[in-house]
Amino acid sequence: METIDPKDVKAGDEVYIIYHNPHTPTVANIKPAEIVQHPKDPNKLALFLNESFHLIEEDDALFSSEASAEKAFNDMYEDLL
């Protein structure tokens, strides 16, 4: 799995994530997201996704390409597909 270390991103980077729908936890999709300055803390970065800001956590899996995210998604969910 080709993930990006959250410590290595900078504002303006585009990444891909596997996004789990908070209202339907069994639904996951690959989504593009942009790395931006956090609107309330200029010392932190955030993911801008679905018109919302999300703090970047150390255990977030960020991918540099949609293909890398798809491979990880398929590897994780192959038994369910």
Rank of each mutant, 00 (worst) to 15 (best):
T24Q: 05
E57P: 00
P22E: 10
Y19N: 04
N50R: 10
S52G: 05
N29C: 06
P22L: 13
H38G: 14
V27H: 05
A72W: 02
P39H: 04
A67L: 15
Y19G: 02
K10Q: 13
D13W: 01
F73W: 08
L80G: 01
N74H: 10
D41C: 02
N21Y: 08
Q37F: 09
A28P: 03
P32I: 04
E57C: 07
Y77Q: 05
L55D: 13
E34I: 11
D13E: 01
N74Q: 11
Y19W: 13
K71S: 09
H38A: 10
A61V: 03
E34R: 09
L45R: 01
A11Q: 06
E66W: 05
A69E: 00
P32M: 02
F63S: 03
L80M: 10
I17R: 02
S52P: 00
V9Q: 00
D60M: 08
D5C: 03
Y16N: 01
M1N: 06
Y16T: 00
M76C: 12
T24N: 08
V36F: 00
N43I: 14
K31R: 11
A46L: 07
I17Y: 02
E2F: 13
G12F: 12
A72S: 08
F63P: 02
L55P: 07
E2D: 14
K44N: 03
V15A: 04
F63W: 03
V15H: 02
A33E: 03
M76Y: 09
